[in-house]
């Protein structure tokens, strides 16, 4: 039987009259790597703060490991690890001092739980005498994660941990999360990067305080209702404008150096599109069917 780690029921939180979270409900299972995907301002940080007991919900209830986020906030604070969006590091303390400080205030020592953070911390340990302010973004992230893990939390909240971190460090970071998950920790992570969604067990696509879809990354992709084509030409700028005028098109977005265009299933005729674009003086045309990725799905959901 899978147990529930986090349960959120109809939680609403308003800033003024604007709802940052609008009656959100979801469950996270124990040991799950759960991703919140959404643009800036979608309500991810607000949700994390409510779950880490830093904010009170205006309406609804939420429990973390069976503990109420309002009433049992003290107990929750002992069992969770939290890595806020702004890395909570003291820039004038060294790497080692930061880690030691967080170990101390959570009532443990580095030695006691070293095995938990070894894989991550060993990468920055050569710089342990360096001030945190002089670390690169990737190293700060690793240190912040080490600090969040040092007291052996059963549940880890990571609020946009990969924002402002280079691509290589991001991949490394997700590898670390996978390893932590194998160790049995439940992980809740938020990110604005859609490509990271496929690395989660389940994802919730969130926008304007509402969950648009909640399922496994595969299911998200499977639910994409249209046929999707990748179109590129020598003139990407005009290509987008022209494609958007193509009759029968459902949606069209720039994607790298190409455009992704979707059609209702079985309605697409490639020769027709080719002729249409040639008329508009596009050359070097390639048109190929592709499988949608999470970002395509998210774009589609947002436009519904």
């Amino acid at each position: 039987m899978t147990q529930v780690s986090i349960s959120v029921k109809a939680v609403t939180r308003k800033y003024g009259t604007h709802p940052a979270l609008d009656a959100i409900s979801f469950d996270v299972k124990k040991g799950e790597l759960f991703g919140f995907i959404g643009p800036d301002g979608a309500g991810k940080t607000t949700l994390f703060r409510i779950l880490t007991t830093l904010l009170l919900p205006d309406e609804g209830e939420a429990t973390v490991e069976g503990l109420d986020v309002v009433k049992d906030y003290k107990k929750i604070r002992r069992i969770i690890g939290y890595m806020p969006g702004k890395f909570s590091l003291y820039m004038d303390l060294t790497v080692e001092e930061n880690l030691k400080f967080y170990a101390t205030i959570f009532g443990t020592t580095i030695e006691e739980n070293y095995h938990l953070i070894k894989a991550i911390y060993s990468q920055i340990e050569p710089f342990r005498k360096r001030k945190a302010g002089q670390l690169s973004g990737g190293m700060k992230q690793k240190l912040a994660l080490s600090c969040a893990l040092i007291h052996k939390p059963v549940l880890l909240f990571l609020d946009e941990p990969t924002t402002g971190v280079d691509a290589v460090s991001r991949m490394e970071f997700w590898d670390m999360l996978k390893r932590l998950k194998e160790g049995g920790i439940t992980i809740l992570v938020s990110t604005p990067y859609m490509d990271e969604a496929s690395l989660c067990d389940r994802v919730a696509l969130i926008q304007d305080g509402k969950i648009l879809q909640l399922s496994t990354p595969q299911q998200v992709v499977d639910h994409f209702p249209y046929e999707l084509y990748n179109v590129s030409s020598g003139d990407i700028y005009n290509l987008l404008a022209d494609l958007r005028n193509y009759p029968g098109m459902m949606s069209c977005y720039a994607f790298g150096q190409a455009a992704h265009i979707s059609f209702i299933k079985e309605t697409f005729r490639e020769t027709h599109l080719r002729d249409f674009l040639k008329e508009k003086e596009h050359n070097q045309l390639t048109i190929e069917p592709i499988n949608p990725n999470i970002e395509d799905c998210f774009m589609e959901l947002m436009n519904r």
């Binding site: 703060r49 880490t52 007991t53 830093l54 003290k74 604070r77 002992r78 969770i80 939290y82 806020p84 969006g85 702004k86 890395f87 909570s88 590091l89 003291y90 820039m91 967080y102 205030i105 959570f106 009532g107 600090c147």
Partner: peptide, 13 residues
């Protein structure tokens, strides 16, 4: 301002 207060609050202090 630095956001470290968030973690201090979450800590058992």
């Amino acid at each position: 301002e630095l956001g470290t207060m968030e973690l201090l609050l979450v800590s058992p202090l």
